[in-house]
Each structure stands twice: as C-alpha cells, then as structure tokens.
Design a protein around this nucleic acid. Structure first.
Lengths: 115, 115
DNA sequence: CCTCGAGTTCGATAACCGTCGTACAGTTCG
DNA sequence: CGAACTGTACGACGGTTATCGAACTCGAGG
C-alpha cells in the first residue's frame, strides 16, 4: 500500500540488488512475459496504463492476480510504475536492465514464436 | 566409433517445440544456471563430463537432484548429452539456442554478478 | 457526500517444483 | 564373476507460487 498521494515516488527494487535468477523467473511466467511484451510493443519509452495492458494483452486474469504479477515484475527490477490520477501506469526499465544484462531484454522481446 | 568406447547420442527435445518460458524457467534455477555457466566456461564446444561439471561448479546437490536438473536442461533444449563409456558428457546447444533466441545465452553467460 | 472505478492486500486452495534416499541398470576393471 | 563407479526412475516431503474472491483504500466525478 504505497502512498497513492505522491505521483512519482513509488518504491522499486534497487537494480543492483536483483539477481539474475529472479529476473529470469519473473520472465518465465507466461502471463508476465505477455505483460512485458505488451508494454514493450505499445508503451514505447513512455509506458502505458495498466488497464490498457490488460486490453491489449488479451490476458484474462483477475485484478488480484494481475496485481501480483506486477509486483513480481517490479521486484525483479523489470518495470517502474507510477500513478496518474486514479490509474497506474507501467514502463519497462530498459536502461537499467540493458546496462546490467545486455541483450537479455532484446532476446526475450524479439521471440518470433510468441503469440 | 573411432575408439573402443561407444559414443551414442540420446533423444533430446525438438528445439522448435520448446517454448521460451520453459527455457527461462530452466535458467532461472540457480543450480541449473550454474551448470550452464560451468559447461560454457570449461566445456567449450566439445562439452565435458558431468562429473567434471560437479567438481568445477562447486555444487553440492545429490546425484538424483543433479540428474533432475540435467533432465530439465535437456527438455528445454539447452544441452545435449551422450555417453562416453560409463560417464555421461554434456554440451551446450549454442547453435540451436542462438538461432532461435539470439543473444539470450550470451546475456545470461556474461552476467558478471554471478558467483 | 456518495458512488463508481482502479488497485492492493489477505486468506485459502491447488498445483508445481527442488530435494533427497532408495532401488535399479549399465559400464569398467580387478 | 563381483565390486566399484556413474547415472536414472520412483516416491515422498516441504516449500514456493499462481490463482481467486472478498474486503479494503484512495481518487475522480457527479
């Protein structure tokens, strides 16, 4: 229950404290992989609203399940989230992830076999 | 069959039928990641004996656990194994993995933060 | 002030997975 | 042959995790 009053100061994982297995485990879950791919495809550098992710991804998970997945992605250092009014937005941390594991995100995102 | 000892390949996963989440899940387990890194570091293109992997990796898992990890790596299409006498050898399937997910193995193997 | 929409948290449940010991199968070598 | 070595198959146990509904918080907009 991070403060919804502040719009930009949500707590996120310290990138340097995240281990590679945690990142891989986060991406290994099909629903989370779908989220990441959707954010990359539609969000660009500015990110997008979580609700839009839900629409575009075609995922059917419940609100609580989605919230759980976002939490895992956040703790793996893969995404940043912030509030815009009553809606939450999400963005990939490309700079951070690319700096630490060059090529990893590209490899995952360019998978032509994913639906 | 150039020597007295019989070398024969075992059945492995069809690379095209493996999904990305399965590969990521295989690599997300610290012990398996260690195995892959050890094979990459010491095995080169020719692979190495599983027992040598055990020595070099410093893993302390039991025989059955190691066997299980190898099975997961095999089913994920990440390694090939074959018999050399009474000892089993293992080799990374770099060509196959690199062809399907370019940069993925490199990204995982060049992680400087792994012990 | 009150209602609706967007998300989080909690508790419960079911499935998955890593681990091990034991039993078993094949190879090597004395 | 038989003992030692190498690895797999099978059950069992315990911990992790994905999933959901319900209750809750907070903001937006009548």
């Amino acid at each position: 229950m991070e403060s919804q009053v502040e719009h930009y100061e949500l707590t996120h994982a310290d990138p340097d404290s995240v281990e590679l297995p945690a990142v891989l485990a986060a991406l290994a879950e099909p629903a989370r992989l779908k989220i990441v791919r959707t954010v990359a495809a539609y969000g660009g550098d500015g990110g997008m609203a979580c609700l839009t992710v839900w629409d575009k991804s075609g995922l059917t998970a419940s609100k609580s399940t989605m919230s759980h997945h976002y939490k895992v992605l956040r703790e793996a250092g893969l995404v940043v989230m912030w509030w815009v009014g009553s809606k939450k937005h999400v963005r990939l941390r490309r700079e951070v992830v690319d700096a630490r594991w060059p090529g990893l995100l590209d490899a995952v995102l360019t998978d032509r076999t994913a639906d």
